Computed example of a mutant assay.
Amino acid sequence: MKRFVLFLCVVVVLLAIGGTGAFLWAEGQVQSAMAPPGAPTVEFTVPKGTTGRGLGTLLASQGLIRDARIWRWLLFRRGAFSPKAGRHEVSPSMTVAELATALEGNPIPEDVPFVVVEGWRLRDTDAALAAAGLITAGAYIAEASNPSRFNAPFPLPTVGTLEGYLYPETYGIVPGKVDVHGLIQRQLDMFAERFYTPNRDALTKSGRTLHEVVIMASMLEREEPLPEQRPLVAGILWKRVDKGFPLGVDATSRYELAQWNDRVAFLKRLRDTTDPYNTRHNKGLPPSPIGAPTAASLQAAMTPKPSDFWYYLHDAEKKLHPSRNADEHEALRKKYNVY
């Protein structure tokens, strides 16, 4: 009885559209699509609890069908219709009938959050992905070691890896279907969105190259826990670079360690004057970024704060103590027992 009433309602609507010829028009619409073959796929979400008829309005509002009334006509013709809640890949190239079939199929698996922590190196992200069972160990590093395979609105390194350019953020990942290349491209896109695009002109005016800023920012991410203090630290470090003094950033000597907090290996690195990442002995910036900086660190590296300070240290509570000369710095080292 209900189906018959629905039929009568649809017939009335179609007659209002164009008389008896509306039936032929409706049949043609069911087999037509909004776009020619080959249109890109899009995601369409079937909300939980939505009725089959209710989907017509949603499909029309997203440009996947022309008229919700045609959707109701299709449902009448099909009879049973059981859409599955969730995200579905569909296309404007699909006919109305094909859309209905697609929405009864299995939805796209739900993403799980994966956090790329601020300051992480490529090896840290790779290890975390492998530990979560999302990739084979080494796959992330291998892909990030081929910068030429990626696209970005900023210059990518021509040698080495994408260290420093893969923005630390929470990314949705589908278990069992991790596209490492796609994840890295998303991180590059996020780098552009969060820093490069809004700061393109300011970067040009800074007098530093993007790569220099990224290297400095990667050190700031490890050196200063408080974002508001990073411009001051950046000013000190850039001044030492420009005047030809060693940076003395011990975090750089940890960069190539298998485990960042391996103290024995770290102390050995500090004594190695041949290590290119030893900024106690080598002047200028280290050979590459030492991790993934945030927008706050990148901003600080690009716009450092001038000061009279040449040195700084952190006490046991990680509070910053800058100093103007070697004597003041030595006094602070003794006061806070920092060596």
Rank of each mutant, 00 (worst) to 15 (best):
residue 14 L to Q: 00
residue 255 Y to C: 06
residue 194 R to N: 14
residue 186 R to P: 05
residue 234 A to I: 12
residue 200 R to P: 04
residue 244 G to H: 10
residue 78 R to C: 06
residue 63 G to H: 06
residue 230 R to E: 14
residue 256 E to Y: 07
residue 243 K to Y: 09
residue 58 L to N: 03
residue 20 T to Y: 11
residue 81 F to S: 02
residue 152 A to D: 07
residue 113 P to K: 01
residue 139 A to I: 14
residue 285 L to D: 06
residue 111 D to S: 09
residue 147 P to M: 00
residue 293 P to Y: 12
residue 277 Y to N: 10
residue 59 L to M: 09
residue 138 G to A: 09
residue 117 V to N: 14
residue 69 R to Y: 09
residue 7 F to A: 10
residue 280 R to M: 06
residue 300 A to N: 14
residue 158 T to P: 02
residue 9 C to A: 07
residue 156 L to S: 00
residue 27 E to F: 04
residue 117 V to E: 15
residue 112 V to R: 06
residue 270 L to P: 08
residue 53 R to C: 05
residue 311 Y to F: 13
residue 337 N to W: 03
residue 12 V to E: 11
residue 335 K to F: 05
residue 251 A to P: 15
residue 82 S to T: 15
residue 43 E to F: 02
residue 108 I to C: 04
residue 337 N to L: 09
residue 83 P to V: 13
residue 38 G to P: 01
residue 124 D to K: 01
residue 234 A to N: 11
residue 164 G to Q: 02
residue 196 Y to W: 03
residue 69 R to A: 02
residue 123 R to P: 01
residue 98 E to R: 01
residue 191 F to A: 07
residue 262 D to S: 02
residue 273 T to L: 13
residue 12 V to N: 01
residue 159 V to W: 03
residue 270 L to V: 11
residue 149 R to F: 04
residue 102 A to M: 11
residue 268 K to P: 04
residue 143 E to G: 04
residue 87 R to H: 06
residue 179 D to Y: 03
residue 25 W to P: 00
residue 191 F to S: 01
residue 248 G to K: 10
residue 51 T to C: 08
residue 330 E to D: 14
residue 148 S to L: 03
residue 286 P to H: 11
residue 142 A to V: 14
residue 302 M to W: 08
residue 243 K to W: 11
residue 337 N to D: 15
residue 62 Q to N: 12
residue 80 A to Q: 15
residue 42 V to N: 06
residue 142 A to G: 10
residue 21 G to L: 11
residue 208 R to S: 05
residue 311 Y to N: 09
residue 58 L to Q: 08
residue 126 D to L: 05
residue 223 E to H: 13
residue 85 A to V: 08
residue 162 L to A: 03
residue 306 P to Q: 06
residue 145 S to E: 11
residue 262 D to A: 04
residue 329 H to D: 15
residue 103 L to A: 10
residue 56 G to Y: 10
residue 5 V to D: 15
residue 305 K to E: 15
residue 117 V to I: 15
residue 190 M to F: 02
residue 89 E to W: 00
residue 171 Y to D: 13
residue 259 Q to A: 09
residue 75 L to C: 13
residue 195 F to V: 07
residue 298 L to Y: 14
residue 225 P to S: 14
residue 336 Y to H: 11
residue 12 V to Y: 05
residue 151 N to P: 00
residue 70 I to K: 01
residue 49 G to D: 15
residue 214 V to L: 00
residue 6 L to G: 03
residue 71 W to F: 05
residue 264 V to F: 06
residue 279 T to K: 04
residue 312 Y to S: 13
residue 211 H to S: 02
residue 99 L to W: 07
residue 174 V to I: 15
residue 267 L to W: 09
residue 249 V to M: 14
residue 331 A to P: 10
residue 193 E to V: 03
residue 92 P to N: 04
residue 286 P to N: 12
residue 308 D to I: 12
residue 121 R to V: 04
residue 28 G to P: 08
residue 197 T to S: 12
